[in-house]
Amino acid sequence: MVFNMERRTTPFAKMYLIAIFIILYAPIFFLIFYSFNSGGTMSHFKGFTLDWYRSLLDDKRLLIIVLNTFAIALISALIATIVGVFGALAIYSFKKRQTKNTVLSLNNILIVSPDVIMGASFLILFTIAGIHLGFMSVLLSHIAFSIPIVVLLVLPKLNEMQPSLIDAAKDLGATEWQVLTRVIFPYITPGIFAGFFMALTYSLDDFAVTFFVTGNGFSTLSVEIYSLARRGISLNINALSTVLFLFTMILIVIYYFLQQRSHVKTMGVRK
C-alpha cells in the first residue's frame, strides 16, 4: 500500500492506520485465500483448486437462494425508492417545522431500532395479519426498513434545491406535475439513485430481520450462510464470499461514481 500523507502525518500515525487497514481487510482476504484451498479446511493450504466454485455452480438450491435474494433486493429497493421519494416530497412540502420534525422522527425510528426488535415486531405483525411467512413477508419487511433510508438520502437534495426554482417553473407556465417531472425529479436524481442503491445493499445484507420473518422453505443468502456456518466450516461459503466480495466491490465503485457526480455527502456505513 502506498500512503500519500502530508507532513503532519507522523510515522506512528502511518503505522497505526496501516495496522487498522490490515486488521479490517485480513478476514476478508483470509476467506478468499482459502476458497482456493484443495485441502477443505481454513488452515493448511494444500493446493490450488477451483472445485469450490464449481460445486457452487452445481448447487441448484444455492442458486435459487441467490436468485431469491436478488429478487427481494431489487423489488424491495424499487418499491422503497418510489414510496421514499414521495415521502420525502411530502416532508419537504410541510410548512410547519413541528410537523416536519414529527414525521422525520417517525421516519427515523426504524433506522435506530435494533434489528431484533424490528424482526420480532414484524413477526407479530405478519402473524396477526395472516401473511404467510416466506417471500411476501421478507419482501414487505425489506421494503419497510429501506423506505426511511431512501427518505434520508433524498431529503437533503430537496432541501438543497433553491425554492425559487419551483416558483420559476410555475412562472414559466409549468403545472404542478410538470414542475415535478421537469424540475424536481431531475434535480434530485442523484439522491434517488443513492437511495435506491442503499436500499439494495441494505436488503442484500440483511440477516436479522429476514431471520425472524422467513418461514421454512424460503431463505436468503445471509440466512443460508448462517445455517451453513452453524454447521461448521465449508469452503463453499468461502467461494461464495469471494463472489459476493467482488460483487460488493462493483456496487461500491458504481456508488462512488454516482456520488462523485452528485457531490452528495451522505456516504454511509451499512448496518
Binding site: 433553491q162 425559487s164 420559476a168 412562472d171 424540475v183
Partner: peptide, 12 residues
C-alpha cells in the same frame, strides 16, 4: 414572468 433575485436558473 419573473427574474428572480437568485436567478433560479435550472442547474440541470
Amino acid at each position: 414572468n419573473t427574474v428572480f433575485q437568485d436567478y433560479a436558473l435550472f442547474p440541470h
